[in-house]
Amino acid sequence: MFPLERLPLAERYAELLATEGVVRGLIGPREAPRLWDRHLLNSAVLAEVLPTDSTVADLGTGAGLPGMVLAIARPDLRLTLVEPLLRRTTFLEEVVAELGLDNVEVVRGRAEELHGKRTFDVVTSRAVAPLDRLLGWSMPLVAPKGALVAMKGSSVAEEIETARPVLATYKCAEPEVFVLGEGVVERPTCALRVAWADPSSIGWPLTRGSQRKGRNRRRPRAH
């Protein structure tokens, strides 16, 4: 899961989460004893479905989950950790500096602020929002041949059905659901992958008609 030579980095990151992460309110005190099972290993198995040498944006990364874990487990990936809160980005930058992770960029801001400016091979997130809202934040950042790859819970099937109109508006392909880490970790990870139906004709920017409809709906912002 972690290459042997990268394991000390993962161990140090876990220590920082359990100490500075708790002190700064990034991780709950009750989570500290179960960081490996519920957070690090749970995030690390996501690396199984990420293409080699890809660029990855982790939206609402918080304390760096899953983005920082993926950067440690897969040095071939180039991670951009997107987070609006200063206390979190400060912690992330300190972790990057201490661990010497030259494949990580920390960006303070919201996903929408990168729309039209950046695209990535993979856009990931963990417990950020239901799929219908997540698509609006993520798909504008997905490269033509890239995909949204989000960590999801047991309600993923219901989320897909609720998001059908948004999936159609953005011209997305049929979502794929993967269960990762079975027989390896105590809590397998459910991952959802959404790509463009036709990379040569993506559904963003939206047409004017779709934009007007979107403005009539209240759109929460990514956290």
Rank of each mutant, 00 (worst) to 15 (best):
F2P: 08
L7M: 14
L7E: 14
Y13W: 12
E15L: 01
L16D: 07
E20D: 13
G21A: 01
G25N: 05
I27W: 08
P29N: 04
E31C: 06
P33A: 03
D37V: 14
L41N: 06
S43K: 07
A44M: 02
S54V: 09
T55L: 00
T55I: 03
G60P: 06
A63N: 03
L65V: 08
L65F: 13
V69H: 01
A71E: 03
A73V: 04
A73C: 01
P75R: 09
D76V: 08
L81T: 07
V82N: 00
R88V: 06
V96N: 10
A97D: 14
E98C: 01
L99Y: 12
N103G: 04
V104E: 06
V104D: 05
E105Y: 05
V107G: 05
R110K: 11
E113P: 09
K117N: 01
R118C: 02
F120R: 00
F120V: 08
D121N: 11
V122W: 02
V123E: 14
V123L: 13
T124H: 00
M139C: 06
P144L: 09
G146S: 12
V149E: 01
A157F: 10
P165Q: 10
A168M: 02
Y170M: 12
E174R: 15
E174V: 14
V179C: 13
G181H: 09
E186M: 08
E186K: 11
R187D: 15
P188K: 11
P188Y: 08
T189A: 12
W196N: 14
S200H: 13
S200M: 11
T207R: 14
K213Q: 14
R215D: 04
P220A: 13
